[in-house]
């Protein structure tokens, strides 16, 4: 089941652009260093955008896991 010790999980499937990006950033802000955030998305553009923008913020992208037809979970480790 759970691959990582996820501290927080958000489900932004179906949300319009750029809500997934914004929600990811909001979630990361409230987290402690080393914690892992799980972001559940279903839009391919989010899969391309979110990892790049969180990397730019200094966080680590552990994995982009394909969990279904056009559905992915991004695991992000908070920097620190």
């Amino acid at each position: 089941m759970a691959k990582y010790q996820v501290a927080k999980s958000i489900d932004v499937r179906g949300e319009v652009c750029p809500v997934p990006d914004v929600e990811t950033k909001r979630a990361l802000k409230g987290m402690k260093p080393g914690e892992i955030l799980e972001v559940w998305i279903d839009y391919p553009m989010s899969k391309e955008r979110i990892p790049e923008s969180v990397k730019k913020m200094g966080h680590e992208v552990l994995e982009i896991e394909e969990v279904g037809a056009s559905e992915w979970k991004i695991y992000i480790k908070v920097k620190g």
Partner: peptide, 12 residues
């Protein structure tokens, strides 16, 4: 073709 088609609906 790219397996990116999906009926996407927001929760809110």
């Amino acid at each position: 073709v790219g397996k990116e088609f999906k009926l996407r609906m927001p929760k809110k």
